[in-house]
């Protein structure tokens, strides 16, 4: 049995019986930053939901720290999930709680620490993401970048061995995006954390990744280093990294039929 933070074996999954992810295999080693890339509709978000325990696969398995995530009961799955951190694209902070209460939540629920110690840890995590002093704000009072950083602080509150981040720099200005990239690298370098980042931001991916996994139409078509992806001869990968639109055959007649709703 593998003890890697996460091992994905022959994963096929999707919605309502329709497969969106096909026979994917992946492993993330301890202290590794893996960037999962792909264009819109490539299945990144669905893949992530399978990895973080929110969606049972149609086939295959996901193992967290050597234990199967989906062949255990709900309580055992929740216990396994305590070992990971997830920063959602939207932040998904509890809107009725303040910033400090959001970050403190996993500590209150899963540790025996007293309030004072939890308060210190919360301030440390907020300092780590550059938000010390914002403890008493509500999520509705935060900017998009701040929401994402609070989500990261909450995700790392329990110092998990593996953290997932969904589009951490999407929609952020370049300065904040760069700060988040630095933060991810800091998590690996200072805490030895494994980080899986789902993104389509090429610049960010090339900056932080130890390894890049490319999803295309639900298939993993590439897994390798930044240097390897740049040198790849695969046309679809080159299209992705050089931002070239897919070369669909253009038939004026079919296009016209589509416009008038006949096709």
């Amino acid at each position: 049995m593998s003890r890697a933070p996460i091992t994905v074996t022959n994963l096929t999954g999707g919605y309502n019986g329709t497969a969106v992810i096909h026979n994917c295999n992946m492993q993330i080693a301890a202290g590794e930053i893996v960037v999962i890339m792909g264009g819109s509709g490539s299945g990144k978000s669905t893949f992530l939901r399978h990895l973080i325990g929110l969606k049972p696969p149609m086939e295959g398995d996901v193992q967290l720290f050597g234990e199967s995530l989906y062949s255990v009961d709900e309580i055992a799955r929740l216990r396994l999930l305590k070992g990971i951190g997830v920063a959602f694209q939207s932040g998904a902070l509890l809107s009725s709680l303040t910033v400090a209460e959001n970050v403190a939540l996993p500590l209150i629920e899963h540790s025996e620490l007293d309030r004072e110690t939890i308060g210190v840890i919360v301030r440390m995590k907020l300092d780590f993401v550059g938000l010390l002093g914002k403890e008493d704000l509500l999520p509705s009072e935060l900017s998009g970048g701040m929401l994402k950083r609070v989500a990261v602080a909450r995700a790392i509150a329990l110092d998990p061995r593996l953290t997932f981040m969904d589009e951490p720099s999407a929609g952020l200005d370049p300065v904040v995006a760069a700060a988040l990239d630095e933060l991810i690298i800091k998590l690996r370098d200072t805490l030895g954390m494994s980080v899986a980042v789902v993104t389509h931001e090429l610049e960010s991916a090339f900056k932080i990744a130890d390894r890049i996994v490319v999803l295309d139409r639900g298939h993993i078509i590439f897994s390798g280093s930044v240097a390897e992806i740049k040198a790849s001869s695969n046309q679809r990968i080159q299209n992705l990294i050089n931002r070239i639109a897919e070369d669909e055959e253009f038939d004026p007649e079919t296009h016209l039929r589509r416009l008038v709703g006949e096709a």
Partner: peptide
């Protein structure tokens, strides 16, 4: 419903909180 739309229920689940 609002918690579902905001992903807060998913967030609770992945934090290991039922």
């Amino acid at each position: 419903g609002s918690m579902r739309l905001n992903g807060e229920i998913d967030a609770l689940t992945v934090m290991g909180i039922s």
